[in-house]
Design a protein around this nucleic acid. Structure first.
Length: 283
DNA sequence: CGTAGACCCTGCGCGC
DNA sequence: TGCGCGCAGGGTCTAC
């Protein structure tokens, strides 16, 4: 469900509910995720703290926690394929299906983390250790970062492709190159840029890298503006659906007419994931 | 070192 | 109506 835009939409909707709130306790309801939840760590590093900020790095949601007498910590949440994070009102007490973690806030509201497929993650660590933590140490640049040294541009993609082979679509999804580009938006950005998903990264010229970088940023920004893509069950932190799926040009549209040239959209599997593209206008 | 494939899970929609 | 199959937004590990 969630690529970068969906996580950013969740972040933005959670932020006003969480910043300034106090964490009374963290309840581990079902510890079995791929990395089992550590109730002791939550108790030691999250309980009794105040939310200072809600940030995002790649597809990770970062809830910064502070207290007067200890260094800052960060609650890290990843939605995997099927995770959902919502704020529940005080008194709304029914346990939800697949609810793994409940963060109880002062006043009775709760932050609820659900994940049927259990590919998600939840852990807490000192904020100072974030950059060196194994989940973050090898991450590439943020595609929507401001202009500057680490902005996503054609030169960044071209440099990252040096010495590599293989098709451009999995390359775009490689989080050591650029983060946040998942299976939906990789197909969409390639279609927007007119680049064939199977094209080898060694045969892409500077101008096309530039166009591709631009389209990646554009597609992600548009998806955020439209509240994220909802295929089955994505909702923001307040439980609202997103609308970007109506804007998808090729993803999930095998056999339908390409909006640009009318050719039938095709589906292939690359690196185990479905890719949708148009032979008429992607070269 | 870089890349391809298997794998971790549950739920849903489709065709029979 | 009910059932089995294929497929799903992510990431990591192993084998080449």
């Amino acid at each position: 469900m969630p690529e970068l835009p969906e996580v950013e939409v969740v972040r933005r909707t959670l932020e006003p509910h969480l910043v300034g709130a106090s964490v009374e306790r963290v309840e581990v309801r079902a510890p079995a995720l791929r990395e089992p939840l550590d109730a002791d760590a939550f108790e030691r590093h999250a309980a009794g703290r105040r939310v200072a900020a809600v940030r995002r790095r790649a597809k990770y949601l970062l809830v910064d926690l502070e207290t007067a007498d200890a260094p800052a910590t960060t609650l890290v949440l990843h939605l995997g394929m099927s995770g959902r994070i919502t704020v529940r009102a005080a008194g709304d007490g029914e346990p939800l299906p697949h609810e793994h973690l409940v963060v109880h806030l002062a006043g009775g509201r709760r932050l609820s983390f659900r994940d049927p497929r259990r590919f998600g993650q939840a852990f807490v660590l000192p904020t100072a250790d974030l950059d060196t933590d194994s989940h973050f140490a090898h991450l590439g640049i943020e595609p929507l970062a401001d202009e500057g040294e680490s902005a996503l541009d054609g030169a960044h993609l071209r440099r990252a492709a040096v010495g590599r082979r293989g098709p451009v679509k999995p390359f775009l999804m490689d989080s050591t190159v650029v983060v946040g580009v998942g299976n939906i938006y990789a197909s969409e950005a390639l279609w927007e840029a007119g680049v064939h998903p199977k094209r080898t990264v060694r045969r892409i010229a500077a101008a096309r890298w530039e166009r591709l970088a631009e389209k990646v940023r554009e597609v992600l920004a548009r998806a955020i503006a439209e509240g994220g893509t909802t295929l089955n069950d994505f909702t923001d932190g307040e439980g609202n659906a997103g609308y970007f799926q109506v804007s998808l040009a090729v993803y999930g549209r095998e056999g339908e007419a390409c909006p640009r040239c009318g050719e039938a959209v095709r589906r292939v599997v690359q690196a185990g994931r479905s890719t949708f593209y148009c032979v008429g206008c992607q070269r």
